[in-house]
Design a binder for these strands. Structure first.
Lengths: 330, 330
DNA sequence: TTGTAGGCGTTATCAA
DNA sequence: TTGATAACGCCTACAA
């Protein structure tokens, strides 16, 4: 918030300093300025001219104007990351940070956009911003994918790199190996993670079927409203036979379950086994979890985006992204 | 990640459908197309022409091209939110979401950019993206502010709306009123919140001085590494006289302190009083805190951004954003 | 009610 | 080694 009284109503929107201004003042042509400013490959510019142009550009305070450049070139240096919510979880945040760092080195900028079809159709976005690459963090519906593919931007899906269903399977497999036969499943309710949540649950169900134990008893827990864990705990305890272990959608939900247990004087891993997914920092005290290898995941996303930028075929995302980490809670 | 084999190396970057194409196919002028597409105010277009243009635009798959529009208009419909890290806390995320919703209704798009001077000088950003308004989430250094003010974008600081130091004061005042005289202070170590953290601590110190009690004993806790709470707890316990209450930088840190206590068999609010700031959902079970009124805060930010867009003077941010909420922990 | 024409800032092409 | 020119797609004053 601008508290300075003098810049209120700012009446003087400084005229833009164009490369033509720089050319005029330097006494050279616009083309020459462009060559210098872009280190035009295959062009030889005399050192004196180069320095002259650079110094006047500096002196006049010239900043290249992105829209003009993009219009001329037909493509921008923008990577648009589509997110369902700005607060979208430890792993995705980390991936985005790594992506941002890697792309800054290539002269690209990563911008995050929270998309919400009910707010504005995705297709209207292209009239507002013209990204070179669109990278979807998290799952996308089929129509959403179609709209992005219809745009002129290249399209990278981060979803699909890590087999989410496999994470659910691994949770069940571990709990089974520890003797648990009646499982609960703590779903997250946030629409932002719905697609991922469904895949994880599907994986868990598949593992149960394969191992010959009943489907997990699914309860929904709201990350925005932690007290919702209590009714879930009640129902798992009331089940017949009683639930002895719970797969949580992720570590956050798992920690909520553990906290709920603790506040009732129960001990996670003893009175009820709890296993998460992600291995977020807060989990590292006591939570058994399926670690998401953030570094490997980030590398895969970066490779995919760089390939898209360079118009190269998408790399094979196969890799080992999931690892069991056993701690106290299960 | 694009698994489809057929779109690898995509050799046919479809030619862009321009408004001129729509004009040609419709058999009208480019101007008419523009009038129809923009609902040009003060222009009357016959219903038949309008429908013709709209339908051919649709049929040809015309999407307006943002850079050309921006170049012509001299301004974009982009609001750039500057963040120190994509994972930047409950309150800021909520504010950004509200801002996003409000601006979508005005035909603007909110894009979040993680800025990191060591990665890329802020000034280079304007060659990549040309926002109409820049809104800084969280504090900014003086040179950073200067660079933004030198750009052609309008500039809104969300920092400064809420008096962060007052939050620190309120923590101390409450703990004092409950009889505490020897306080600890749990700082967050993240550089993303450094400026805010310093203001809150300064407020706490000022309140201590005013009330005639010693400065709080400051310990740093790492949000990314929860075990750092333990040495902090040790030092507060070892102080002479012993620390009886702790102000935490925010609820997250406060919860870490409470969790650390619990894991030692101690009870927050009994063995050590703990007070947070923000009132995040997870705090709502048992944490005493200074609530940050997200709705009021969001409204203030939205008002500031809208004023900037409309070139109106910045509104007065004064308001009542902070409220004490007493629960079990202090 | 619709069309014509010019220009926004940049860069690539071609000529000098 | 440098300069003139055209074009990217869109919008709008002015003319018809």
């Amino acid at each position: 918030m601008t508290a300075d009284p003098q810049d209120e109503g700012s009446p003087a929107p400084r005229k833009r300093v164009t490369s033509a201004d720089v050319a005029r003042v330097s006494g050279v042509s616009r083309a020459t300025v462009s060559y210098v400013l872009n280190n035009a490959p295959g062009r030889v510019i005399s050192e004196s001219t180069r320095e002259l142009v650079l110094s006047t550009a500096q002196r006049l305070g010239h900043v290249p104007y992105a829209p003009a450049r993009t219009l001329r070139l037909g493509k921008s240096n923008i990577v648009l990351a589509l997110v369902r919510d700005f607060a979208f979880g430890f792993v995705s945040h980390r991936v985005l940070r790594e992506l941002d760092t890697a792309l800054a080195a290539r002269g690209f900028v990563v911008l995050a956009h929270r998309f919400d079809e009910s707010l504005r159709p995705l297709s209207d976005l292209w009239g507002l911003i013209s990204p070179n690459v669109v990278v979807a963090m998290g799952g996308l519906t089929v129509p959403e994918q179609a709209i992005i593919e219809d745009s002129h931007a290249k399209f990278v899906r981060s979803h699909g790199i890590v087999p989410q269903d496999r994470a659910g399977e691994m949770q069940v497999e571990y709990l089974y190996s520890r003797g648990h036969r009646v499982l609960g499943y703590a779903m997250a309710d946030s629409p932002a993670v719905q697609l991922v949540a469904e895949e994880r649950l599907a994986g868990a169900r598949r593992a149960c079927a394969r191992l010959g134990i009943p489907d997990p008893i699914v309860e929904t827990v709201s990350v925005d409203n932690p007290v919702t864990v209590f009714p879930a705990l009640d129902r798992w305890a009331a089940a017949e036979p009683k639930v002895t272990a719970v797969c949580a959608h992720n570590d956050e939900v798992a920690i909520m379950v553990c906290t709920g247990l603790a506040s009732r004087g129960l001990v996670p891993g003893k009175d009820l086994a709890v296993i998460g997914i992600d291995n977020i920092p807060m989990a590292r005290i006591a939570l058994t979890t399926i670690e998401m290898d953030v570094e490997a995941y980030s590398k895969a996303v970066i490779a995919a985006v760089l390939a898209a930028i360079d118009d190269k075929p998408q790399p094979d995302p196969a890799g080992d992204y999931l690892h069991l980490i056993v701690r106290d809670s299960a």
